[in-house]
Amino acid sequence: MLLIHCPYCDDTLPELEFAYAGEAHIARPSDPSELSDEEWRDFLFIRSNARGVHAERWRHIHGCARYFNALRDTVSDKFLRTYKAGEPRPDTSVQEAVK
C-alpha cells in the first residue's frame, strides 16, 4: 500500500484514504463549442499513458476531500511529488525519476 502526501493536510497517509482521479493538467476548455470534433475527442479520450513520470490527480477522499496533483513514476510506482490543484507541474529531473 502506498503512502501519499496530501499537500493540503501536509501529512503522509495510507493510500486507503485516497482515490485516483485520472491524468492531471487537462483543463476543460472554457468554450467547448469552439472546439472541432477532433479537438473535443482528444480532450475527452486521449491521454498520455506515460511510461515513467506521470502527472495525475488524486483526491484525499477520506480526509480533507481535496483534489491535488501528483507526479508518479509509473514504472516504479513511486510518488516523486504532490502539489496543490492549480499549481504548475514541477520540473523533475530524469535522475529523480529513476531513483
Binding site: A21, R57, R59, A65, Y67, G86
Partner: peptide, 9 residues
Amino acid sequence: EDYLQTEWP
C-alpha cells in the same frame, strides 16, 4: 466536487 474544485474554483 471535481468540477467545483478543479474547473470552477
